[in-house]
Design a protein around this nucleic acid. Sequence first.
RNA 1: GUGGCCAUGGUAUAAUGGUUAUUACUUCGGUUUGUGGAACCGACAAUACGGGUUCAAUUCCCGUUGGCCACCCCA
Length: 485
Amino acid sequence: MPTKNKKTFNKKSPDKKIKKKNVEKKVVAPKKIENRTENHAEEKNNDEVVEGIKTGKGKVLSLLRGFKDILPKEDNFWKVIRHSAENLADAYNYKWIETPILEEASLFIRSIGKGTDVVDKEMYVFEDADGDKICLRPESTASIARAYVLHGMHTMPQPVKVWYLGPMFRHDRPQAGRYREFHQFGCESLGVKDPVVDAELIAVAYYFLKDLNINSIVYINSIGTVADRQNYIVELVGYLRAKRSYLCEECKKRINKNPLRVLDCKNPDCKTILEEVPQIIDWLSDESRNFFMKVLEYLDDLNIPYELKPTLVRGLDYYTDTVFELYKENGEEGAQSALGGGGRYDGLVAELGSKEIVPGCGFSLGLERVVNVLKEQQQASGTEYQETNKFFFAQLGEQARRKTLKVLEELRLNGIIVKHNLAKSALKAQLELANKYKADYTLILGQKEVQDGTIIIRDMESGIQEIIDQKKLVPALKKKLEKMN
RNA sequence: GUGGCCAUGGUAUAAUGGUUAUUACUUCGGUUUGUGGAACCGACAAUACGGGUUCAAUUCCCGUUGGCCACCCCA
């Protein structure tokens, strides 16, 4: 119907120039909305809203900066990612958890820490109608720790293992592989402090990528306890102050603001200075060092490729002891190449109000970045993903069409999935579709077949057709499926 | 938050200070209204937005918005 309207509109004004200059043009879509609501008393209001969209920011339709529609053409990527995540979580006994996208802002300020970029610069914080300060979650770990305390999960068998997959929000400048809304898959394990917990989590993250045919490497480090770190920072600042004049401008500032950040500066001069920088590993307490060694031993046993990276520190305050990041193997050193990361956070749950110390550890992976890698790999291998389907159902005429939905349901109940397009009436068009879908067979149901109680099965490669009794359709298709497999 | 590059139909592109903005793909319809993978015909569809210069702007200038890239940070 809408297309018809458009056509008449164009016929009435064949002069394209007039059409173009006609301001009405961009209002075509909104007009439809108007029509739908024409009987409403609020018609006027709608008009104003439409005007606002059109002229307010000079745009008719647009996305918020850094936001993105995930379109059906990416369906196959996200499907395998969801499957992979779910299967793995099941296999390692992580239970699904979903926390709200909106939380009190203070939750993240307390956990991630004031002074971190995530909290200070990147959070979507605003007041709701009640005047509460709320925010779009920038990550999930704090919410899960909150849920642990709130729901008394310490009464469950420990550790409590959960997984999540969902959107996170950070108001950062968009860039390749960086969006303001992005999706993370992550696992958390709370309640037990044991190196095997850390190792298992790293393994799950690694296997997740491996299941998707992405070879990754784990960069790992330990930042010890809070006390260890404080001691180390004193030492580090001392060293950096001595070499201050050789450092880049940024790093000079960082000495006071966030000295650990100097460690992963990319400036070549700074890198030279860092060659002899005191390493945090040497400042760990015996306990932390032993813990870390055990984690590494487990990784050795599992043959998970890792690299010690003494300069790895992470940007969230709650981490203690083990910290790690996953990178694509042989990936370029460029920006945004980390696929995910995580670490241990023994102080976090207590910080959020638990009476006991509840240790925890977890990871999260950036799924947009994973999708990017999958796309790259597809391009590199030249094997474009192509949907293949066994069967397509073509229907002709009103009677056949009515019957089709019933038949499709019967087939579905027998585990036979059949592509179709009921909006098409010409057989030709439907065969074209069957071809596009790369169907092996097309089932053809027309007027004649409905009357005879038969159906045609067409072999799309040879063009050979057989006519069978409709009642024998399911067994016949099952037979074909067996043959194909 | 800082800097660089960029903006033409759904996608990918061509061109231009001046009649109707090129082409391809996609989508839809058609070429004996029951037979696809080919060919042909047709239809839909664009100069991001706002302002300025000009007789005339899609083209030149400014601003805005958005995208990409780097820094920062992170997933």
